[in-house]
């Protein structure tokens, strides 16, 4: 299928799209590579961790929704800058963002994930799984850290992260899309661009399938997050009402 499409789509078009997606990614990353390098070994102290662990479940949930909500704004800006996204009808733009933004965030997370000490950048410093204990979502947190370690093993470049996140965002199989063919065409071109990028750099034939093989774990994490949110809303409806409006818009069904 890829070969057939390649004959229809010119190489120049694919290269232009790759440049656009990579530029959009770099312009809308929450942290530059330099900033991340500077922060790399800035860890929470034992006291910080104890304080965070002693927070109530509700307060920790709220803190996480604020961080996620903030990060989503950058994903929306990324989507807006990807060629073709704004040509979709607004209904489809919303569907793609709602369905795909957490997956995009999970991939973006690896830029701020340190596999050497199993920590992730959270609110300005690096934190391990124990930091999130009070959320009461050990399975979800463990799955997110497992994905972080798995993805880090691939040592994705910024170009690969850019193209992979764009491809995930433009998934044509999201329910209720009105122009899924149009989305499919865009995604096909982005995957072609990713394939070219891989060939250019490493020439490793199964690298693309290794990257794509992480999608099921990402889907599991997204479903688990929705389950946890649903449960939290049942137990603490008044706290959930005060979650950031953008978080509620994206994740309330």
């Amino acid at each position: 299928e890829g070969g057939h499409l390649a004959s229809d789509v010119s190489r120049i078009e694919i290269e232009r799209l790759a440049q656009n997606v990579v530029k959009s990614h770099l312009e809308t990353s929450q942290y530059t590579s330099e900033e991340l390098k500077r922060l790399a070994w800035i860890l929470y102290s034992q006291e910080d961790i104890r304080n965070m662990q002693s927070k109530s479940c509700e307060a920790m949930w709220h803190e996480c929704t604020v961080q996620i909500s903030n990060a989503i704004q950058y994903v929306v800006e990324f989507a807006k800058r990807v060629d073709g996204f704004m040509d979709l009808c607004q209904n489809d733009q919303i569907i793609l963002l709602k369905a795909g933004c957490l997956e995009v965030l999970l991939i973006r997370m690896i830029r701020a994930f340190n596999p050497l000490n199993n920590t992730v950048l959270f609110a300005g410093k690096y934190a391990g799984v124990q930091m999130f204990k009070s959320l009461g979502c050990d399975d979800l947190i463990n799955a997110i850290f497992e994905l972080g370690r798995n993805l880090c093993r691939l040592q994705l470049s910024d170009e690969e992260i850019a193209l992979f996140t764009a491809a995930v965002l433009l998934s044509p199989d999201r329910p209720w899309l009105s122009e899924s063919k149009k989305v499919q065409k865009l995604q096909d071109k982005i995957y072609l661009a990713l394939q070219h990028e891989i060939q250019k750099k490493s020439g490793n034939e199964d690298r693309l399938s290794k990257i794509i093989s992480k999608l099921p774990l990402m889907k599991t994490i997204c479903n688990l997050h929705l389950d946890k949110l649903e449960f939290f809303r049942l137990v603490h409806p008044e706290v959930a009402t005060n979650f950031p409006p953008l978080y509620k818009e994206v994740f309330n069904s």
Binding site: E27, T28, Q73, Y74, V76, E77, K80, M86, Q90, Q93, I94, L97, K98, P245, L246, E249, V250
Partner: peptide, 20 residues
């Protein structure tokens, strides 16, 4: 539209809240 008013606004807004 009302249900997703922030997303609509972010998508339409050229001066997005992202500080670039």
């Amino acid at each position: 539209k009302e249900k997703h008013k922030i997303l609509h606004r972010l998508l339409q807004d050229s001066s997005s809240p992202v500080d670039l």
